[in-house]
């Protein structure tokens, strides 16, 4: 639901953080950098489109220098693609976060 619109509601505060994300889909694995992120979802740009509505697993990397620790922390997430828009820079993808947990690497 709301798949195409929920992210527009900006339920959570969006932070313009550029964090590395590794995304796993049925079509393959992608690496990207977030253009913005909230507790509700992320957006990023990649070359290939991803089907809207598809379920994805992804890891958001939180670098140690900003998380305040000595180790990289990853947030392991499951979610759904809610938007895939073709733009000059490639495909802008928006994914909602349905579940997550922290993982220290």
């Amino acid at each position: 639901m709301f798949a195409t619109r929920q992210s527009d509601l900006r339920n959570s505060i969006r932070f313009p953080l550029h964090l590395r994300v590794t995304l796993k889909t049925a079509a393959g694995e992608y690496r990207a950098e977030t253009t913005d992120i909230s507790a509700g979802g992320i957006s990023f740009a990649i070359d290939n489109p991803i089907e809207v509505g598809s379920h994805v697993e992804f890891a958001i990397e939180m670098p140690s220098e900003v998380s305040g620790g000595r180790h990289v922390v990853s947030v392991m997430c499951v979610g759904r693609v809610v938007r895939c828009r073709e733009e000059v820079s490639g495909q802008t993808i928006a994914v909602v976060i349905d579940g997550y947990h922290f993982k220290r690497l």
Partner: peptide, 12 residues
Amino acid sequence: ADRLELALYSMH
């Protein structure tokens, strides 16, 4: 609202 938002807030 939760740990993730707290972490993002803290980083930002």
